[in-house]
């Protein structure tokens, strides 16, 4: 499949502060492509540049040098902005600060309304989007009465109703409780599988990144590692060095290995770990 988003030697820095001092580059010379239909996790600690990276994908941030293209369109060209945002939708960290309407379904309709879609078509898309995130029963609720996870799902529905082909989620679970996190992650995984929507999940939770097809680790504005979760998490020590976590299952395998036990160390989740341990004990 083709690439929906492409970064070519992209660097970016925020505008100078009040004293006029130039800030360091927030993103340095990043080159990568996001395959259409894939589920990519962008992992990094706070201040690593991962949010800046996310905002480069839909023309909120424009590269200082290099080029970002969405579906072949250059984000630096203002004429493309609308088309780009129609292709790449974004969900932010704070669920409260992205819901604009006082009724759930009105909020989901906000995007299509802005695009000038026919009223009947908007209705159809809104219902469809709310069903896709399992929030249809809440369509007439007031957003402030919903839980954090539900609000995030409404925000995701708002993006789907615009029929975007790619959703970029900027730490969507950072402010949620464990149940809210599960809800949101299950939703985006389902959208990726069932609807083929490309998902870029920016996060610092490694347990979320493990579930992606591909993990890009960003540190200090640069791509530090890029590969399948198995490839990336097998480098446990390096990840810990840049302030990230690795699954405890992986850590356990590493610890056993260090004690001279013959166990594979590319373990990602508890099932694999249990299997490996059982196998070990049987031998």
């Amino acid at each position: 499949m083709g690439k929906i988003i492409e970064f070519e030697n992209v660097s970016f820095r925020y505008e100078a502060d009040e004293e006029g001092q130039q800030l360091p580059l927030a993103v340095k010379n990043i080159s990568l492509g996001i395959e259409e239909g894939s589920f990519v996790a962008v992992l990094g600690h706070n201040g690593s540049g991962k949010s800046t990276f996310a905002k480069l994908t839909n023309a909120i941030n424009i590269p200082e040098s290099g080029k970002v293209t969405v579906n072949g369109l250059d984000t630096a060209d203002e004429n493309n902005t609308d088309e780009i945002r129609r292709t790449v939708g974004m969900v932010f960290q704070n669920p409260d600060n992205q819901i604009v309407a006082t009724i759930v379904e009105d909020d989901v309709a906000f995007g299509p309304e802005n695009l000038g879609v026919e009223p009947k078509e908007i209705r159809r898309r809104v219902d469809d989007a709310l069903k896709a995130v399992n929030m249809y029963d809440f369509r007439n609720s007031e957003p402030y009465k919903l839980s954090g996870g539900q609000k995030q799902r409404v925000a995701i529905a708002g993006v789907i109703a615009m029929q975007t082909r790619c959703i970029v989620l900027d730490e969507p679970t950072a402010m949620l409780d464990p149940n809210g996190r599960k809800e949101v992650l299950a939703t985006i995984k389902r959208l990726n599988k069932e609807r083929g929507i490309t998902v870029v999940l920016v996060t610092h939770f490694m347990d979320e990144a493990v579930q992606a097809d591909r993990v890009v680790v960003i540190d200090n504005g640069e791509v530090y590692a890029d590969g399948t979760p198995r490839e990336v998490f097998s480098k446990a020590d390096e990840l810990i060095a840049v302030g990230l976590d690795v699954p405890q299952a992986t850590q356990l395998a590493k610890a056993l290995k260090a004690q001279g036990v013959d166990i594979r160390t590319d373990i990602l989740n508890e099932e694999e770990c249990i299997q490996a341990v059982m196998k070990l004990l049987k031998e």
Binding site: Q248, L252, V277, M278, L281
Partner: peptide
């Protein structure tokens, strides 16, 4: 519960004689 604890719950379900009061990787190891 922590993943390491879940691993021990899983091992016990597979018939292994282990306790589930494990909550650090070092202890699990």
């Amino acid at each position: 519960v922590p993943q390491i604890t879940r691993i021990f719950i899983g091992l016990r379900e597979k018939g292994l004689d282990v306790e589930t009061d494990v909550y650090t990787v070092a202890e699990g190891c």
